[in-house]
Design a binder for these strands. Structure first.
Lengths: 335, 335
DNA sequence: CTGAAAGCGCTTACAG
DNA sequence: CTGAAAGCGCTTACAG
C-alpha cells in the first residue's frame, strides 16, 4: 500500500477499498499515529484567511481592546500563513445589518465576531452558518445558535457577582441605584450582555434573601447628552451599579459633587475608570479581559484550522475583580 | 549564492565572507524574510527534551496544579517533538539539594523549576546557568539571577492586596491575626513567596496610614501537630490573614468553634478552601493560577526553542480575587 | 568559503 | 481504486 492510499484513508478522501480502510485503521489503532504537523502544513501549503467582524473602535475605547488582542494574534500567526481582514460597523443595528450583508457575500476560512445586537446577530449567524466554516463569538454569547464557539464571560453571572460586591460591607438597609448609561438607548437596550448583567444583579439579591432589605432604583441616561445626572438621583443612595464600562461618567459626577460614602461597581479596565478606581471613587471593576478574548478568538481559529486540533467550543473568561491594588497585573496578554 | 550560504548567514554558522553577509542582510532588510517555521522544523528534525524540577505533589495538593498544566502542555506539544522528564523532591531543603545535584548532571534543552528554598535555589541556578539553556521559573522569583524567565505572581503585591481585602469593610479599629501555618516551620520560613507576602501585607497598612489603627498579632502553627490553634488566639480578633493555601485549617477551626464575624483571607483554589469559601467562612482567596503557570512555563520553552520566537522573560500572573460567586470561572487553562 | 544534493514527512495531481 | 513522483521550504553533511 502506498502513502497515497494511506493518506486518502486518513483524510477520508474516498477512492479506497473498504478492506484497506480497515487495515489502516487497525494499524493506527495498534501503533498509534500522530501526523507530523510541520510536514503536513508544509505540503498542504495553504494560506488561511480569517474575517473579523466587530464594531469600530472610534469613540468606543472598549472595542480597542479585543482589536489589540487580535492584532497580536495576527502578528504571531502570520508566519503560519494566517491573514486577517476586518469588517467594522458603527455601533447601531442599521450599520450592523449593512456590514453583515457584505460579510455574508465573502468567503473566508474562519470568522470572529461579536453578536452585539440580538436579533440581527441571530439572523446573521443562521445565514453564515451555511458556509460551514468555523465561527467564534466573543463578548456575548447566543446560546440558541449551536456549534458556534464562544469566548467571553458569563454575563449573567458577572451581574450576580456585581450584586455580591455591592452588598459586601454595605449596611443592612441600603438603597441601590442602577445607572443604565448608554450611547444610544434604543439599540443598546437590545444588546444581550447588558440585559443579562442586570438580570444577574437582581438575582443575587433575590437568591440571597437572608440579606437585609435592599431598595432599588433604575435610571436611564444617555451619555452624549449633558446634565442627565442630578444630585437628586443620588439622595440617600448607598451604592451604585453601572452595568457597563461607562461607570466613569457616574464616578465623575460623584466626585465633582462630592457625594461621599457611595459604593460604586462597574465594568472594564478603561483608562478613565482606572483613574476613579485609584481615586477611591470606584470600588470594584469587573474585568472581562477583552484583549485576551480577541487573542484567543484568533488562536481558536488557528488551532482548529491550521493545527487541526480539537478545541473547546465554550471558553468562559474569568470574572476578574479589580481593585486599585491588583489591576496593573491584569493587562498583559498571555502566550 | 546558494541556499546553503544564505542559511549559514542567517544562522550565524560562519564560514562565509563578510561581503556575502552584507549582501544578504541588505536584501533581508529591503524585502523582509520570515522563515517558514514548518519547513524549518521539519528539516531540523530535532526532538526537544525539557526537565521539570518541582516538589512532589504527595500530600501537597497545591503542587498538583502546576503539574496538571504541565501535563496539558506536554500533551499538546508532544506532536512537535517535545518530551518532558520530571524530577521531584520532598518539600525540604535536604531533598531539594540532593535532586538538584542530579538535575545538574543531566543534559536537557530547557528547564522549568520553582525556587522554593532561597539559598539552595540561588546556588542551584548559578550552577545550572552555565549550561546556557533556557530556564523558566514558576511560583516564586529570584530576582538576583538574571536572564532566567519568571512566570508567576508578584508575591509582595499579593500580600499588599490581601491587606486591602482585609481592611475593606472592617471596622475602624481592628485586631488582625496573621496565622503562619506551615508543614515544617524550619524550611518554609526560608521560602521566598511566604516572606514576601507577609512583607507586602504589612506594607499595605503602613502605606495607607490614613487608615484607622490596626493591631497585629502573629502566631506560628505546624499543621501536622494537633491542637495548635486555640480559641484564645482568636479573642477579640476581627480578621485573619493566612499567607498560604493552608487557610482551610484556620477556617475549619473558626467554623467548629463558631467564631462569628471574623474576616478571613488566604490563598489558592484548593478543594478544602473552596468549601469554606462557599460556607462564608473564608471571605476572599487570592488565586495565583498555578495550572496556568505550569502550562505557560512549558509553552514558554516551546516558543523559545521550537518556534524560536522572542518571548518575554517576565510574566506576572494576575492577582485574582476569588469569592464564592466567581471562582468557578477561574479554573480552566486557556489555549 | 561555496554549492549541489539529499532528506525531513506529508499532500496531491496524474497516469494507469 | 492504486502507486510513483514531484514538491512544500528549509537544514546539513559533504565534496570541492
Amino acid at each position: 500500500m502506498s502513502v497515497g492510499t494511506v493518506d486518502r484513508i486518513i483524510h477520508n478522501r474516498g477512492q479506497v477499498t473498504e478492506e484497506n480502510i480497515e487495515k489502516v485503521n487497525a494499524i493506527i489503532k495498534e501503533y498509534g499515529f500522530k501526523k507530523n504537523i510541520f510536514a503536513s502544513n508544509l505540503a498542504f501549503n495553504k494560506k488561511f484567511k480569517f474575517a473579523v467582524f466587530l464594531p469600530q473602535n472610534q469613540g468606543l475605547e472598549y472595542w480597542q481592546a479585543p482589536l489589540d488582542g487580535i492584532a497580536k494574534a495576527a502578528e504571531e500567526f502570520s508566519r503560519f500563513g494566517v491573514t486577517i481582514d476586518y469588517f467594522f460597523y458603527e455601533y447601531d443595528n442599521v450599520s450592523f445589518r449593512k456590514m453583515a450583508n457584505k460579510v455574508l457575500k465573502l468567503d473566508y476560512d474562519g470568522l470572529l465576531f461579536a453578536p452585539i445586537f440580538y436579533e440581527e446577530s441571530v439572523a446573521f449567524l443562521s445565514e453564515y452558518k451555511k458556509k460551514n466554516i468555523p465561527i467564534v463569538m466573543i463578548d456575548s454569547n447566543l446560546q440558541e445558535i449551536e456549534e458556534v464557539a464562544y469566548i467571553g464571560q458569563d454575563s449573567y453571572q458577572s451581574g450576580y457577582l456585581a450584586g455580591k460586591l455591592i452588598s459586601y460591607g454595605v449596611k443592612s438597609e441600603s438603597n441601590i441605584l442602577i445607572v443604565k448609561i448608554t450611547r444610544d438607548i434604543e439599540s443598546t437596550s437590545k444588546t444581550t450582555v447588558y440585559l443579562q448583567r442586570i438580570q444577574g444583579f437582581y438575582a443575587y439579591f433575590k437568591e440571597n434573601a437572608f440579606l437585609p432589605k435592599f431598595n432599588f432604583t433604575e435610571v436611564n441616561v444617555k451619555d452624549a447628552a449633558k446634565n442627565q445626572l442630578t444630585t437628586k438621583m443620588f439622595l440617600g443612595i448607598d451604592a451604585v451599579f453601572v452595568p457597563n464600562s461607562r461607570v466613569h461618567i457616574v464616578a465623575k459626577f460623584i466626585k465633582e459633587n462630592n457625594l461621599l460614602g457611595i459604593r460604586v461597581v462597574g465594568y472594564d479596565l478603561l483608562k478613565q475608570n482606572l483613574d476613579y478606581l485609584n481615586d477611591g471613587v470606584i470600588d470594584f471593576l469587573i474585568h472581562q479581559k477583552p484583549e485576551e478574548q480577541g487573542y484567543m478568538g484568533i488562536s481558536h481559529l488557528y488551532k482548529k484550522l491550521v493545527l487541526k486540533e480539537d478545541v473547546k467550543n465554550m471558553i468562559y473568561m474569568p470574572l476578574e475583580i479589580l481593585v486599585k491594588e491588583n489591576y496593573s497585573y491584569s493587562q498583559q496578554i498571555k502566550l
